[in-house]
Structures are given as C-alpha cells and as structure tokens.
Design a protein around this nucleic acid. Structure first.
Lengths: 113, 113
DNA sequence: TCTATATTTCGATTATTCCGGAAATATCGA
DNA sequence: TCGATATTTCCGGAATAATCGAAATATAGA
C-alpha cells in the first residue's frame, strides 16, 4: 500500500457514520448486510448511506453484490490488513524495540484468541 | 477507546501531509524531531505545519516538549496501539476465524521480528 | 537590551465535504 | 404491464477544512 491509498482508506473511516457502518460490516462477516438494514441500524437516510457506502467502496474497504432487490455490502478484510500493515510497518525505523508493543496486539485485545 | 476518539485519530491521519509527518515521527522514535526540521523534510510552510501538528496533538497521536527555541514533537505509541486495537477489536463479532489474518500481522510485515 | 531564530496565532480566502429532497434505476411479484 | 420495494444519482445549500500572509510570542546569544 502506498501513502495516497492509505489516506483514502483513513479518510473513508474518519467519519462517525462510516466508521459505524464499517464496524457493523466487519461484524457481519462474509455474509454482509443489505444497504437498507445498514441504514436502519445506523439510523441514516438511504441516500446519505448510499453516499457513505460509495466512499467506503472506492476506498476498497467494502465490497458489494446484488441479491434480488437488495445490494449486500461486506467488509474487505484484506484491505484492512493492508492498512494496518502499512501503519504498523511505519513504526519500524530499524528499531524493532519501538513497535514491539504492536506484536500480538490482536491477542492482547482479547480477539482471535 | 471510544468511536469519537477513533474518528478524531483517523481524521488526523487522513491527510497526506499529516500522515507523512506522523510516519516521520514514529521513525524518529522517542527522540522526536523539532518542528522546523519536520517542515523542511515534508516541505510545508512552518505555519501550515504548525496547524497540522496541533491537529495531531489534539488527536493524541503526538506529544511535544520545548528544547530551547525548538519544540520537539514525538509520536505517542500508546495512542497508536489503542487505535489499532480498536480497529482490530472490531473485526471480532464472536467469530475468531474472521480476524485470524490479523494475528501476528506485525511479524508478517517484517517488523519487530 | 537588541537582534536573530523558532514557532504559533490570527484572519481571510478558497476548496472540500456533508446532508437531504427529489427524481431516476433496478428488481420482484401480482 | 403495473405497483411496490430497494437503492442510487443528481443537485443545491450549509458546514467544515486547508492554506497562506502577516503579526505575535518565546528563547538564545551578543
């Protein structure tokens, strides 16, 4: 990942509604969730949500597929891993001790035990 | 970390110059770097950089201390760990397999071996 | 104290983003 | 085909952010 792409992803996530949408989708897993249900849960108008989803999609953070009348959105985990990798990689200027705290952060958070 | 704080941090990083500044600082380690040198390296005017540094500081991502006429800025690693933890924690909706790719990402990136 | 250096603050302009109403598009079932 | 549902697109105004010149503040050294 290059810096401009990282900025795009960070910008997409740097908004209360969009971050809430993204959290919802990563929790929904690969099943994803239709736009309408997202709108109800986050409590935003459908057209406003659509704009937010477009921004997340352009940033590569979510994917979409049509299922009948619904469009199902789901989180792109690869993109998140790339973004985290970019941020974590930044912390190492040849000094492993600096970013040692980041090793195994997933376990520390009580996630993916 | 709560969502509003995460949004603040993400917003602060969602700007090309500020992300570049932050990368510079995490590489500089705890020694930090004076504002003037940052401005030269990133190639932005001192007053513009000062605004960016204020934003990063308010987001809790950097710290500052005075040294003579210079003000030394340094990255706050705890805040970054909290932010990454927040994002990673999001990936686990009771489904450890979803975010398994994030476990040990630091090593994967070739960082902090 | 005076001057130079380092950084910040202020103020104004420009650019960008956010939001919602209205209309358009797509799909399903009758 | 028709009407209902789901979602997107278009467009305008309002709010927010970015940038820079100029002035202000703080420190060091002569």
């Amino acid at each position: 990942m290059q810096l401009p792409d990282a900025v795009d992803s960070l910008s997409a996530l740097a908004h209360a509604s969009r971050l809430a949408v993204y959290r919802l989708l990563v929790r929904a897993g690969s099943d994803g969730m239709p736009a309408g249900e997202i709108a109800r849960r986050i409590d935003v108008l459908p057209n406003t949500l659509s704009n937010h989803l477009t921004i997340l999609d352009r940033a590569g953070l979510v994917q979409s597929r049509r299922d009948g009348r619904s469009i199902i959105y789901s989180a792109d985990y690869d993109r998140m891993r790339d973004l985290l990798g970019f941020l974590i990689a930044d912390c190492c200027g040849g000094r492993p001790e600096i970013c040692a705290p980041f090793v195994g952060i997933a376990e520390e958070v009580g996630c993916c035990a």
